[in-house]
């Protein structure tokens, strides 16, 4: 059952590649941003998985508990989540502006209109 220890990573890889595929293949800009979020969340899960220790609890020091999970990935990911939302907000603002300027948020239609002008 040696492969079971890697199962979590494989889930992460699947989610990550699904996010990557959405970002590359889909023309809709909002869909691309959702794909970016999916990708991001999968990276978060990867980090938190690395921090998990067997039999450990949440890293809040209390009496009678000896094993804690690694707090450092948690700190990194807390920061990353907040920064991720900031980038999402900025991206959505750009999408709204693009929609106003061109009247579409599909990537290929954008290119066509760009060529026309």
């Amino acid at each position: 059952m040696a492969w079971l220890g890697l199962y979590n990573y494989w889930i992460v890889v699947f989610l990550m590649m699904a996010g990557l595929y959405i970002v590359i293949a889909r023309e809709n800009l909002i869909k691309k941003l959702v794909g970016l979020n999916v990708f991001q969340a999968s990276v978060f899960i990867l980090y938190i998985t690395v921090g998990k220790v067997d039999g450990g609890t949440a890293p809040i020091i209390a009496e009678g508990i000896e094993v804690y999970s690694n707090p450092l990935p948690h700190v990194l990911i807390l920061t990353a989540i907040v920064v991720g939302v900031a980038t999402t907000a900025l991206g959505l603002a750009l999408v709204v502006r693009i929609n106003e300027a061109y009247g579409t948020i599909e990537d290929d239609e954008l290119e066509e209109r760009e060529r026309e002008t």
Binding site: T49, A58, H74, I77, L78, I81, V85, V96
Partner: peptide, 25 residues
């Protein structure tokens, strides 16, 4: 995975604020 702090940040910010922003857009 024992990351309670991350969990409630993700639930509030990732699931909450992100979705609201997306719906707004």
């Amino acid at each position: 995975l024992d990351a309670v702090d991350v969990a409630f940040t993700e639930a509030a910010v990732g699931a909450g604020i992100s979705t609201v922003l997306m719906l707004g857009a």
